[in-house]
Each structure stands twice: as C-alpha cells, then as structure tokens.
Design a protein around this nucleic acid. Structure first.
Lengths: 279, 279
DNA sequence: AATAAATGAAAATAATTTTCATTTGGAGCA
DNA sequence: TGCTCCAAATGAAAATTATTTTCATTTATT
C-alpha cells in the first residue's frame, strides 16, 4: 500500500509529455482534483480522456474512479494540519489541533528518515556493550526515556543530562560503546562536544536532530533526522520531540523483535520486579 | 465538516424502510462500499438506484459519487491501525506502524478526555503558586518534560521522580499548590500515596492515567484519562505516553494563550538565556 | 377516500473506458 | 542527410457503464 502522490512523483520522469502534464497538474492541484470529471481534468491538462485513464493504470490502479478514491483517502490523511490554534480555543480543541501537528510531523519525519541509518543505529545499539544518551533541556526527558527503555531490555544504558557528566562519561567510552546525542537544533554546544569526544575515544556516535546542516551531524557516525514545521506556538518543538520518541521506540521494538530469548526474559524480569510497586 | 458515518447513524431513524436498509447496509459493510456502483449497492439493499441517490442527498451530499469520496476519506482516517508489527520488519516499517498506533491512541484519548476537567486542570496550573509533578519509571520522563515546559513559562514548577523526595515534597504543599501524578496503570503505590498526602495538605491534585477505576483517581481532584490499546509489543505503553505528552502540551499551549504579557516575556527570556549554549 | 410521503422502473444524462486511427520521435540504413 | 520503418504515445469518437432525473405506482396516514 503506497501513496499515490509518491508514486506519481516517482513515475513522472518515465512518462510521455501528455501524461507528464497530468502528473504536474495533479501534483500542483492535488486538493482540487476530487470534484473534477475525467474530461474536465483531461481538458485542463490539454489531453484526451484516454490519456487520463492510461495515467491511472500506470499507477497500478483500475481506472480514474479508483484514483479519485485513493486521492480522497490520502488527502484526508494529510490535511489534518489545517487548523491554526486560536486564542479562545478550549484546551480540548488545542489537543485536537495538536494531534494534527503531531501526525504531520511524524509523516514528515518518516519521509526524511534514512532507512539504512535507522537500521544501522538499531543494530549498533543492540550489539553495543554500553550505551550512553546525551540530552539537555528539552531533550533530557527524551534521553531519559530512551535509557529507561533500553534498561528494560537488559542493555547497559544510561542517560546523561548534565554537561559536566557528559564530558566525563564521553572521555571514558571506547570501541564497542554507542553514544547518542539528542539536540533538536543540532547546535547544542555541550552535546556536540561530548559526541566529538566519544568519537575520538572510538565509540559509535548517533545524532538525532531536526537539521541536516547542524554541527552535531559532523560529530556523528550515524545521523537520524526528524522533521517538524515549527509554527508560532510550537516554540518548544513539541512535535519534533514526539518524532524523537517514536524513533527510539522503533529502535526499541526492533531490538525486542531481533534479539534472542534472553532479551525477552529481561523484559519479563523487569515487569516482575516492578510488580510489588503497585497496588 | 462532520463524519458521514455519524450522520447516517443520526438520521437512520428518520428514514423510510428502504433508505433504512441502505443505512444498515453501509454501516455494517462500511469498508466494502467503495468499489460498488450505485446499482450494485441498490440491489444489495433491495431498492432502486434512485433511493440510493436520495439517501446521499439526505446526508447533505451532492450524490452517490460524493458519498463514496467522503467515505473513502473517512475510512483512511480510521483504518491506519491495520498493520501488526512483524518480526522481519525493518526499523522504518516499525516506525511507520507505530505512527498508526500513536494516531489511534491520540484519537481515542481525545474521545475520553473530559473537556471540563482538562480546562480545569489547565486553569489550576496557570494560577497555582507552585506546581509539582510526580512520576516514576516510565512516567518520570514525562514529569520532567512537563516541568520543563512550565518552567519556561516562568511558573514555579518541579518534577519529582524519587519516591522519598515525593513524600517529602508532598508533605510540604499547601493550598494554592497543584500536584500532578502520572501513572499509566494508576496503581503506582508511591505516586498514589504522594498524591493523597498532597490532598490532605490542601493542594489541588491532578491525576493522569489510563484506567478509570485506578486507585490514583480517588486521590485526585481532577482526573485526566488517556486511552491506548496495548498490543503485544507496546509493553512500554509507548502510545499512552505520547498521549500524556500531548495533554501536557495542550495545557502548556492553553496557558501561553491565556496568560498576560509577562508569560510571553518569560518565554522570550528563556530563549535568550539559552542562546549562548549553542553554536 | 383523500392526501402526502416513499419508492422503483425506466428514461435521460453524464462519466468512464475502449477502440482504433493518427501522430510523434527515434533507430537503422543507404 | 534523408528516408523508411517501427514502436510508443496520443486523442477522437464509439461503446460501455454509472449516475441522476422523471414520473407513475405503491404505501402509510389521517
């Protein structure tokens, strides 16, 4: 199940001029296609009806009808972002609108995430003998959450959220360790420095950031990018933080699925150990 | 913009028998309507084509076509939860599937969240002279993140993630303070005890949990519920954690929007103070 | 029995798909 | 270079299919 819009973009170059016009038109007027009949669309693109049908078939669909249905489905999935949060909104309305932002940020992150880098990071963490995760401010909570996850798996993980401690810990890492630095801006001085130090000491370094050009990227062996469009009120980069959480969660899940019985046992042990903390 | 399915359910009773059959059929075969032509559907419902058109018009739509488009859009919004995470999935595929879980958990949370309780909690926090947030394990990261947010607003907030400290801090609260306890299960002994103590001391207590019957609810003045369907691999209640984050984010945003200039200035000051921590 | 609402068959309209003749852009060759 | 041939691409129109409208009939209600 793939996105039609993606597919159009992908196949665009292998099309003849008339079909390419259709592709262009749909990509630039995606939202306005739905009410158009095939002949309206065809004449808007200066081509015959048949070409539109062929175009739909090329996308692997039954015909124009199905294309419209699929587009409708996709648009609804994408267009939750419409609503701007307003001053008089109730808290629940804000929640609802935030949901949309979260969703679109996750979708954007999915499209920029490098699949190989992600797998590589997961494998490195799974096999490492020690994992340290650096975060400050905003990102400290994420670092802590990630460490918590990995600890439950029985891995030797630790979050370090104090810039002095980060320097100290970094300087004692070695080959076989993995260091993860989290910084939305990618420009957090202490995090970047710590990661550089880790690299010098031979550890594998992973960066999680929102910006491709950021200093933190150079200090990392593996870079994982989130994506969020910061609007006025998302000063705290809320949705990029959720994308970060989701990245760690995927890595966690990947490790659970790909590790031996021992790791599963470790999870069970954790559960058991926590049982008597509850009513 | 209302849901077609909702509308059908709502209008169902005011319809004649033939239209009601259509309503029944659509409600019980929602997913299978899309490829059907109007006459196929009509004969499946034992009625004429015209009745189907009338049915669509009654829903406020142009005709059968538009109804199908709307249904397609709605279905896609609902049916993201389909994919189970599999052992051989790549990390990115896991990410993609997690996105769906997050989305459906947020939607479920939105539907169980009590709007008044949420506004009440936000107002209590906005006006309080001191805010403490309790979390342990999983929830510690959320508590920390929330405290971080409120601190940026210039509020007197603090996360406490050590059960001794929780008891100590709780015992010193008083009227005008707000205590927030986060526990997915709602049964975390230390959190519940701390919250009880807070209540005795006169503080306003807020609980964030996934279960309506949980002990933590009784210890709270205001209860906010998340909702997540825990499947096999969501042991760590990932998606409920995201719902918790989103709740705090909504509260944060609400406060930003509803407070005076001073709070906005506080945010700006925070940004400024952090500037020289970056490259 | 009178009336209004509901309904479906069939006609009218509209949309989509198929067919097929024409065009277009090379590739091969003298 | 100019020519022929071929395959791919294209659109007009025909054929098919789907949707909508009309209107006579049925059904329920007063």
């Amino acid at each position: 199940m793939e996105s039609i819009v993606h597919k159009i973009r992908f196949l665009q170059d292998s099309m003849g001029p008339a079909e390419k016009r259709i592709a262009d038109y749909i990509l630039s007027h995606t939202g306005e296609i739905l009410p158009l009949s095939i002949s309206t669309l065809a004449s808007a693109c200066g081509c015959g009806d048949a070409t539109v049908v062929r175009f739909a078939r090329r996308l692997g669909l039954e015909g124009y009808q199905e294309m419209k249905l699929r587009l409708a489905a996709e648009l609804s999935a994408t267009s939750t972002l419409s609503a701007e949060i307003q001053r008089q909104d109730s808290c629940l309305e804000i929640f609802r609108k935030r949901m949309g932002e979260i969703q679109s940020s996750l979708a954007a992150t999915e499209s920029v995430l490098d699949p190989e880098a992600l797998d590589k990071a997961a494998k490195a963490i799974m096999r490492s003998e020690r994992i340290v995760i650096f975060g400050l401010g905003n990102s400290a909570a994420i670092a802590q959450d990630a460490a918590h996850k990995f600890l439950r798996l029985g891995l030797c993980a630790q979050s370090v959220c104090d810039n002095h401690m980060q320097a100290i810990v970094a300087s004692h890492l070695r080959r076989g360790s993995v260091a993860v630095g989290i910084s939305h801006s990618g420009a957090s001085r202490d995090i970047v420095e710590a990661l550089r130090l880790c690299k010098i000491c031979g550890a594998t370094t992973v960066a999680i950031t929102n910006y491709g050009e950021a200093p933190i990227v150079e200090a990392s062996d593996i870079a994982l990018f989130t994506k969020s469009d910061e609007t006025e009120h998302s000063i705290l980069a809320m949705s990029s933080r959720i994308a970060q959480l989701a990245i760690f969660d995927s890595i966690y899940t990947y490790i659970v699925l790909n590790s031996d019985k021992a790791a599963r046992q470790a999870i069970a042990n954790t559960e058991f150990a926590l049982q008597n903390k509850k009513y």
